[in-house]
Amino acid sequence: MSGNIVARRYAKALFTVGMKQGAAELETYGTQLAGLAGALAESPEAMRFFRNPVFSVEEKKAVLKQITSQLGVSQMLVNFVSLLADKSRLDSLPGIAEDFGAMLDEKNGIVSGKLVTAVNLSDARKVELKERLEKQTGKKLVLDFGTDADILGGVVLQIGDSVLDASLRAQLNILKETIKRGE
């Protein structure tokens, strides 16, 4: 989740409305909100336009209407971004989308994580590790795999806020500290 309190509040408000309307609508809002935030992220000049106080709220709403109609966004989401324009909060849209996505993942029992190894893993090994971790956590995982030769061996696993550093580098550092203390 983003660290922006304003974004979190707006995301929570939209999430609450979506929950009342049903799971299908909630998923639709998440998809459309992510699409809208992605479109704005690809166009930095649009974000500069929305941040610029020289342009009136009505001008910003007119541009938003064009963008949302091209993306096929639902009327509820059009109303939501119109409210953001009224409150001069359009610059918070990427954070709102990020927080909304995190809330949706939490509701669906999906946890994001990253697994770093010293060498590239085969696709079969990645699938095997992911399945094993899903069984242990009891949740569906979305894992990013990465490599870092500096860990020397083993793995560094981050799931949510938890980090498991089972790398050779970490073990050597522990050994080094133990030797320093004379234990």
Score class of each variant (00 low, 15 high):
D105L: 02
A62L: 06
E106R: 08
G109F: 03
N108R: 15
L64W: 10
S112R: 11
M1T: 08
F80C: 09
P44E: 00
S56K: 05
F50P: 01
L141F: 02
L40P: 12
L36E: 08
A124I: 07
V119A: 01
L157Y: 15
G154V: 12
A149L: 09
K176G: 12
I179E: 11
I96Q: 07
G138K: 10
G18V: 10
D123H: 04
Y29S: 06
K140G: 06
V155I: 14
K61Y: 12
R181P: 04
S56A: 03
M47S: 02
I5Y: 07
F100P: 10
L71E: 10
Q21Y: 15
N4C: 01
R9G: 08
A170R: 13
D165S: 13
E58L: 06
L40S: 01
V63K: 02
G138Q: 10
T178N: 11
S43M: 10
S69Q: 13
D99F: 08
T28N: 02
D99K: 02
V81A: 00
F100Q: 01
A7V: 04
I159P: 15
E27I: 05
K87E: 04
D144P: 14
G3S: 07
A46C: 04
E98P: 06
L152I: 14
D161C: 08
A149T: 13
V78T: 03
A166V: 11
